[in-house]
Design a protein around this nucleic acid. Sequence first.
DNA 1: GTCTATAATAGGATAGAC
DNA 2: GTCTATCCTATTATAGAC
Lengths: 192, 192
Amino acid sequence: MPPAILSRTEVIARLTVVLRRQGFAGASLAELSKATGLGKSSLYHHFPDGKDDMTRAVLAQLAEQLEEALFAPLLAPGPARRRLETMTGALDRFYRGGREACLLANLVVGETRERFREELAAIFEEWIAAIAAVLGDAGFPRILARTRAEDAVVRIEGALVLAAGTGRAAVFERTLRQLPADLLAPAKAGRD
Amino acid sequence: MPPAILSRTEVIARLTVVLRRQGFAGASLAELSKATGLGKSSLYHHFPDGKDDMTRAVLAQLAEQLEEALFAPLLAPGPARRRLETMTGALDRFYRGGREACLLANLVVGETRERFREELAAIFEEWIAAIAAVLGDAGFPRILARTRAEDAVVRIEGALVLAAGTGRAAVFERTLRQLPADLLAPAKAGRD
DNA sequence: GTCTATAATAGGATAGAC
DNA sequence: GTCTATCCTATTATAGAC
């Protein structure tokens, strides 16, 4: 077997695929080994603490990707509507129109939550903060912007769950389509 | 050891607790045995196909509970607003204000989805249909009622994910609080 | 940094007594 | 209908050669 063909980034990308499909408990070292082309011992060389380390590496890399594909565009200058649409476009590609599951949701439901609590919370919080910044720029008061930003993430994650649950990816597509306008809709008395 | 103390219903309730915390892959026979007080062999006596059978039994019982606690009240006569609030009240208790994970979401993210596809889809579809019926009674056109009903489930499931992800159960509480009014808000041109 | 080999354990599942 | 005992496989993890 030839030495190190894959970059660390690519290895982690392949671990991600397995983890987001099988979850932490369902992903076996055998599968992770096969997916990366690395023997178990090689995996332990790179990730001494086993699946725990791998998952942390996967979450760190995911955080970087989200930073680049979602958070940075959200925080960039430009009209609020366009910034939000950049986000929904990126999400659509990332989750393959609702056909791909969400790693965050997978790790967050159930007991693995505790194990990776900080990493997971940090990602969600940064995401919410970035959306809230857009809505703040759009003129919404701080608290309303924050609430609506949480709502946005709620709807995205929920749409992924329901799309998976019903087998109808269209639910996700529709949610993404409606999101920018809904987030920017004028506040109604008593509604928010 | 004394014979059969627990009813089948109670046994399944205890299996539910483990399954919704650990997920299908994470729930071991040892844990399921401990939680029910039944030895592995006894579990296999009641559920010959092992975890698969147990999960199906859990889903069937969950469907019954939802039927009674959610769907029936939604389909009962009365003002739409009150029927929706009965649902959100039941959900609040069921998920302990957002502190308890959702079994459906747990089974739906990742590979177990395929294994229990029909059972999961049936529950989600019935739930959506029941909410859509309320909105239909409230005067919304068929398609809009259906879309908003999907949105409702999207927001509930998403709020559970985000509450778990951030550790802030308040996200779930707020989502439930806003839901009835949002669902019944007059349609705005171009928004739905 | 990767491999083969191997340990040690946990997991799912069954047999057979009571 | 439950238990104890057992089986076999998969799983995590490590040792040591290259």
